[in-house]
Amino acid sequence: MASWDIRFDRLQAGYGERRVLTDVNGVLPGGAVSVILGGSGCGKSTLLRQIIGLSKPMGGSIVIGGQDISTMDRKAFRRLRRHMGVLFQDGALLGALTLGENAVLPLSEHLSLPKDLLRREALRVLSMVGLAEFIDYYPNELSGGMRKRAGLARAIVAEPRILLCDEPTSGLDPITAARMDDLLLSMHRHYPDMTIVVVSHDLDSLERIAGHVLVLRDGVSSFCGKLEELRKADDPYLRQFLRRDAGEVNDCGAQAMDGTVAASLKRWLES
């Protein structure tokens, strides 16, 4: 079974009239861990929604495993999408189901398996993300980071050929974040054909897991290649991003409060 790569060709996408992605090019190679990097609000989640076909491209194309998904018919695309596991940015667990039921949802819905087998599967994937003892909890009884880990468990339960994770480590403490990265790496070792795409703006996790990097900037892919090439690149924005430098053009910063507001506020605080 050959691994599937994901290829963007002059992709444009957005919401309503607004174009968020204007020109995305590049390949996320099959059987590798690729990181989509970019600032907050630059369209990373939008790009992910394009890959999983939740909205149609406004122009250009996405080719997955040699098939252009923008020209594919609905049924064929749904068959292809069965091979994808997706972790949404906020987990997107079903609130009415327990963690265990959520984790095996793709299996329990499509296969007729006995309950105890499903529960064993749920335990297996939940213990992979360190949540085995929470199997009977409901998503709303967990913290945001735990929900995200449970979402990852659901994404990998069916051993997909393409695993897409939207910010798996944001909102996690450094130790748990490192454990998530290790989990992704061990998935990568265990399933060498799995194409893993991770959306992130976490540089530590980029260093740990990335084989390949796609950098988004203002809706354009400004870099797509191996991590080593990114380190050597001399584009000022990339260097700035890697150095976590705000740069010269900086419109963020502390400013003094209006005098009247300050005086009223002071009175209230002291009253």
């Binding site: 939740l54 079903l94 793709p106």
Partner: peptide, 16 residues
């Protein structure tokens, strides 16, 4: 609520 928290999208992706 399921719609705005991506739960319906998640169902679609799981082919449910």
């Amino acid at each position: 609520v399921m719609r705005i928290t991506d739960q319906i999208d998640a169902l679609d992706v799981m082919d449910i």
